[in-house]
Amino acid sequence: MSRAEVESPIVDPDWLERNLDKVKVIEVDYDPVSAYNIGHIPGALLIDWKKDLNKYPERDIIDKDGFESLMSRLGISNDDLVILYGDYNNWFAAFAYWVFKVYGHDSVKILNGGRKKWIELGKPLTREIPQVRSTQYRVRKVDLSIRASFLDVLKNLRNPNVALVDVRSPAEYRGEISAPPEYPNEAAQRAGHIPGAVNIPWAQAVREDGTFKSPEELRALYEGRGVTPDKEVIVYCRIGERAAHTFFVLRELLGYRKVRLYDGSWSEWGNMVGAPIER
């Protein structure tokens, strides 16, 4: 890889097609039935977002042991370069990327444009499931500095040095709905936004084909709304996956040094007794 390719957090479809034998590709799906199962990038493994990245019975991301088990089952080694991609403009791939970073697997990138761009370009897809040999993956470090809790957000309300970014749709931000009708299980008791949050919907960071906008366009988008690199930024949505997309944009593409994902997001805040709300 060239130096630029090594340093970039994204890879483009042409590069990936030429280098499929040199990396570990993982598709991250919300619903594999309508995605991975009917066709995926040759050699790609599957992470089922619901089953594999979420802990049960409590609501949380998988813990360290869970991440080690997942990586071992997928045949991933600590030194593997992992390329993540998925549908829905890489929402869930971005969430997986964040989980990888939490558990210290830094050699990870995202396929620009995800499934959408790959299919648009007519690149090969297969239903063949790759054979893998399990590994003994061990987490070397855990980085919780990129995760924000309810209390982290609460104590930083109105802090001028912290920018709170709500990446949901304007209707959710304004409190007209707490979740779109197609997500009935994610509706909160209350609708609105966290006081002081600015609304910059995640979709403003991508083009129609699902690829990320240029750094110049992205800088103008966020800095124009007061989300500047000198601030600490906390991003949220409803359950954390769209916010992970913006986390990736700010921290990985624009190089913001302090970005945290509040993965509890509105499904937590909007259900919390006493949590302040603005509309």
Partner: peptide, 9 residues
């Protein structure tokens, strides 16, 4: 592409 997979199905 902005709806979750379950919704697309």
């Amino acid at each position: 592409s902005s709806l979750c997979g379950t919704s697309r199905m």
